[in-house]
Design a protein around this nucleic acid. Structure first.
Length: 566
DNA sequence: GCCGTTTTCGGCCCGACTGTTTTCAGTCG
């Protein structure tokens, strides 16, 4: 599967074209890159079937470029652009305030190719001499270089969401604030986020701005105005706050939730109906048609309400026009967690503690699935598994509010065999199979290994199917479509793992899997009672993958669930 | 470079802010 590679090359072409001031062709390449990146099928398959040009934003020329990438792994066009501008685009673009135009000017006038060159020339005061630059720009650049160097990039949703909620709660304590909401990619629950966007309604903007910029979470204030302020938080992440009128709040939420791609299409739709859409409302001539609520804004454009998690312009707008949006699985639909660890292996909490917490969350059931054998995780052998089953029997007798299921997270060895004997596996309610070592196998081996696991009669669930860890490691080199095909044939359930670093399957894979007819389960893989709350991240990942309640087995009441995993 | 319920050619989302200007270009979201 080469979708990501193809998209990345097209994106780079756009970056370099932008240097040259090429406007609309740049946009065309970005649009094509977005189409490929979010495609829920293999771009190579589309190409073989001659269907590439049916995709939005892909015409004759980009079709040819994609063919070249698929055949040769490279794109000559991009290589030529690179040799014309031999500079570190990525790094320079990280410097706030520098865009393609200024980068080109700096390269042509001063030969600046990277951050080191940039720093040198700024310190020599050469930059202020250039047209359109001045002392302020030069000082700004020097200041921002340091930040660009240690730029942490996008952070994990799971790390940022609690911080955003904290800020929202603090602002909502102000008497003068009528409404406060989180917008941006956090609201869309994207797996990584670049900043925190907060929108408010208040009659006293200055008071809110003072409070926001003086919070103890703030490292430095970047901009402070009456309608908008930006701060850099202690952890290096930027947070924006904006003030709107009550009557505009819906259109502001649509606009600042994005995505950017969705906004562009919404505005085109408005234009096609001779309306105008901006963050202050929907207008026709000078008459205001909508703006107070999001639903009202969508309705004015002839669309059903689109849940934030779907707002990526990957087909949801067309679905909303035809009244065909999916009924997404809801956070309250989840009836239990089927993948957790306890202090029997590498977890920190006891079975009793985990069950008590889960019961408090309103769950009907909880499956205890400690590691087997894995030495680093103090994994269980047959004997200890048996002891653990006895303890679970006891706790089940004492606890009336929740049913604890007996399970295990069993290792797939390098050939796809399980490391616990069938006699014991047969006694368990639930068997999860997972790859935990020998991760860098060749595609052929890892595919065979996982296929064997899926075909094993004892295996109910495949945990974290691709093995990726955000900002840490690549997925296994597996053929994902083969995996979905096999899983749908064998009826093995695929996990959406809710750990902030994993979110595996990820959103577009969730969509692919359901299109193959696979059943899914959303699990937390908790190692502590506090991890159980990660469920929300998994559910939002499933929602981003268009999953409905019927696709997720842990939305079932216990009797039906037991039939599925029996 | 893509695309069409006005269009096969002439458009391509919109507004705020900043620093540099003396009416605007570049950047950002």
């Amino acid at each position: 599967m080469q979708n990501h590679k193809v998209a990345s090359i097209l994106q780079q072409v756009a970056d370099y074209l932008e240097l040259d001031g090429v406007d609309f062709r740049t946009k065309a390449y970005r649009r094509a890159a977005h189409t490929i990146e979010t495609l829920s099928v293999d771009v190579a398959d589309m190409q073989k079937q001659g269907k590439l040009e049916e995709l939005p934003g892909i015409g004759k020329h980009i079709h040819e470029k994609i063919e070249e990438i698929l055949e040769t792994g490279n794109l000559e066009y991009l290589e030529n652009l690179k040799s014309e501008f031999p500079l570190d685009m990525d790094a320079l673009m990280q410097v706030e305030g520098l865009g393609p135009k200024k980068i080109k000017l700096l390269y042509q006038e001063l030969g600046i190719k990277n951050l080191d060159d940039l720093e040198k020339e700024a310190k020599r005061h050469h930059i202020r001499r250039l047209k359109g630059m001045g002392t302020k720009t030069e000082a700004e650049i020097l200041q921002n270089i340091e930040f660009a160097r240690k730029s942490i990039g996008r952070q994990l949703l799971g790390d940022v969401l609690p911080l955003a909620i904290e800020i929202k709660q603090r602002i909502s304590t102000l008497d003068t604030v009528d409404q406060v909401q989180i917008a941006g990619s956090i609201r869309r629950r994207k797996e990584t986020v670049g900043d925190i966007d907060i929108l408010t309604v208040t009659q006293h903007p200055d008071e809110v701005m003072d409070y926001f910029t003086q919070m103890d979470l703030v490292g430095e204030v970047i901009v402070k105005g009456h309608a908008k302020s930006t701060v850099r938080l202690y952890n290096g992440m930027d947070a924006d706050i904006r003030v709107f009128k009550e009557s505009d709040f819906g259109s502001a939420m649509v606009y600042f939730t994005g995505s950017r791609e969705l906004n562009i299409v919404l505005r085109k739709i408005a234009l096609s109906k001779s309306m105008k859409l901006n963050e202050y409302g929907v207008f026709q001539e000078d008459v205001r048609l909508a703006g107070q609520t999001e639903s009202e804004v969508f309705r004015a454009l002839g669309l059903d309400y689109i849940p934030p998690e779907l707002r990526e312009n990957t087909g949801e707008i067309e679905a909303a026009q035809r009244g065909k949006l999916p009924e997404l699985v809801d956070y309250n639909d989840i009836k239990g967690d089927l993948h957790i660890h306890t202090n029997w292996s590498d977890g920190k909490s006891s079975i009793w503690e985990m069950a008590t917490k889960a019961s408090g969350m309103g769950y009907e059931y909880l499956a205890v699935t400690d590691h087997t054998r894995l030495p680093v995780a103090r994994g269980l052998d047959e004997e200890r598994l048996t002891q653990q089953m006895n303890e679970i029997d006891q706790i089940n007798e004492e606890m009336e509010t929740i049913t604890i299921l007996k399970g295990a997270e069993v290792n797939l060895d390098s050939y796809g065999n399980l490391d616990i004997s069938s006699d014991i596996l047969r006694e368990l309610d639930l068997v999860i199979a997972a790859v935990h070592y020998d991760l860098r196998q060749d595609p052929e081996k890892i595919n065979e290994r996982i296929s064997r696991g899926l075909e094993n009669e004892h295996v109910d669930i495949l945990a974290h199917p691709t093995g990726r860890k955000l900002k840490e490691r690549q997925p296994y080199k597996l053929d994902i479509e083969n995996l979905f095909q096999k899983a749908s044939e064998s009826g093995t359930i695929l996990e959406v793992n809710s750990q902030p670093k994993r979110l595996d399957l990820k959103d577009i894979h969730v969509k692919m899997a359901t299109e193959y007819g696979c059943q899914l389960v959303v699990n937390t893989d908790s190692h502590h009672t506090s991890d159980l709350s990660y469920m929300e991240l998994g559910v939002s990942t499933a929602r981003r993958g268009w999953a409905e309640k019927k696709d997720i087995i842990n939305t079932l009441p216990i009797k039906k669930l037991l039939k599925v995993i029996s």
